[in-house]
């Protein structure tokens, strides 16, 4: 059988071009393998080999995202590979995001089997682990050998279209897809071991992490609603008709600020939702169902509230990384503070 053709993506540092001072390095395609690629080629042996390496500076990639992505993707496509590997990025944040972005694009746009690897706390991990296979690594290049050892068998399985088993068996980061497998010990014995560790304060790994509870302590109640300024904020994607800022239907990369001056009611002709992943019919028919401007105007008129804040803030919650959502909120929260808003009504889909 012919060797599988692999394209490998690495940054300027691992290509031995330079460190931070060379982070603006533009995408470049080179034949054969470079740097960490050697370790991959050795491990793949007769099964596969890196036919080309794409190099891109981390700053360049992240600051020119759309353009860099398109160029890199074109370079990968030109090699007609059977498999694509990015990284490992270890704990390099921008490199990790680049590896995740490119791997996700290769998967969705080129449909080529692909994977990447990085440290679990690399921001790229949280952003992309549910989209592509990411092998967890140590936090520095010390973990190269171990990373290659885990990536190679998974890469070959992916390239051959074999079924991928549970994350702990195939060594990828848990991606929200639960897969069955047989453990070495029965469940009750595992429970006894886990409890002994937990009682002794020793580390243990739960087999099912509870959903993340990001609980926020509520602020004290607003005492004087009749004179309060209330703002509306939504992750339900309500935007003026036509979505002027092109907020994405999922994994939104931005939020919008829109003026409600003189708007008494949201109608099918004036507003819509940009949100994917749920049936938008009812939101599009009457966007007040998600962003209740009409009711707020009633309350304003009835004197229940002082007034509705002039601007509303909106983004799409669908698949949007928690980190990004937090960043959006911390930005417009400052605006709300400046405008002396007393309370915010947050709505989702």
């Amino acid at each position: 059988m012919a060797k599988l053709r692999i394209v490998h993506y690495i940054n300027q540092f691992f290509a031995q071009i330079g460190g931070e001072e060379m982070a603006d390095y533009k995408p470049e395609l080179r034949e054969g393998c470079i740097g960490p690629g050697l370790a991959f080629n050795q491990a793949f042996g007769e099964d596969a080999e890196i036919v080309a390496t794409v190099i891109c500076g981390d700053s360049y990639f992240n600051e020119n995202l759309d353009e860099a992505k398109a160029t890199v993707l074109e370079m990968i496509k030109s090699q007609n590979p059977d498999l694509f590997i990015a990284g490992p990025a270890f704990n390099a944040g921008r490199y990790g995001v680049a590896c995740g972005t490119i791997t996700a694009a290769v998967k969705s746009e080129l449909g080529i089997p692909c994977l990447t690897a990085m440290y679990e706390e690399n921001p790229g991990a949280d952003m992309f682990k549910n989209q592509v296979y990411i092998v967890p690594t140590k936090n520095s290049a010390v973990g190269m050998r171990d990373a290659v050892k885990k990536m190679v068998p998974l890469a070959l399985k992916l390239a051959h279209g074999e079924e991928i088993g549970a994350s702990c068996v195939e060594h990828y980061m848990p991606n929200g897809i639960r897969k069955n497998f047989f453990e070495k010990k029965r469940g009750s014995a595992r429970a006894v071991d886990m409890l002994l560790a937990k009682m002794a304060g020793k580390p243990f790994t739960t087999e099912f992490p509870m959903p993340d509870f990001d609980r926020v302590t509520p602020n004290p109640a607003v005492k004087d609603m009749a004179h309060a300024t209330i703002a509306l904020v939504t992750s339900g994607g309500i935007v003026p008709k036509g979505n002027p800022d092109h907020i994405e239907s999922s994994s939104a990369s931005k939020y919008g600020e829109y003026d409600l001056e003189g708007v008494m009611d949201l109608t099918a002709d004036t507003y819509e939702t940009a949100h994917g992943g749920y049936d938008p019919v009812y939101a599009n028919q009457d966007a007040d169902r998600v962003l209740p401007v009409d009711v707020m105007r009633d309350l304003e008129r009835e004197g229940v509230i002082g007034k509705l804040h002039r601007y509303f803030y909106t983004t799409v919650g669908n698949g949007t990384a928690v980190k990004n959502a937090k960043r959006y909120a911390s930005e417009f929260a400052q605006e709300l503070l400046k405008a002396n808003v007393n309370a915010v009504i947050l709505t989702s889909t």
Binding site: R178, N180, F181, K184, E207
Partner: peptide
């Protein structure tokens, strides 16, 4: 589905089957 099989996902931990 595995739920049709007697004892397949026992919650006393009788089996070795697990998931991640």
């Amino acid at each position: 589905e595995l739920q049709a099989i007697t004892g397949a996902t026992n919650e006393m931990g009788f089996n070795k089957l697990s998931a991640r």
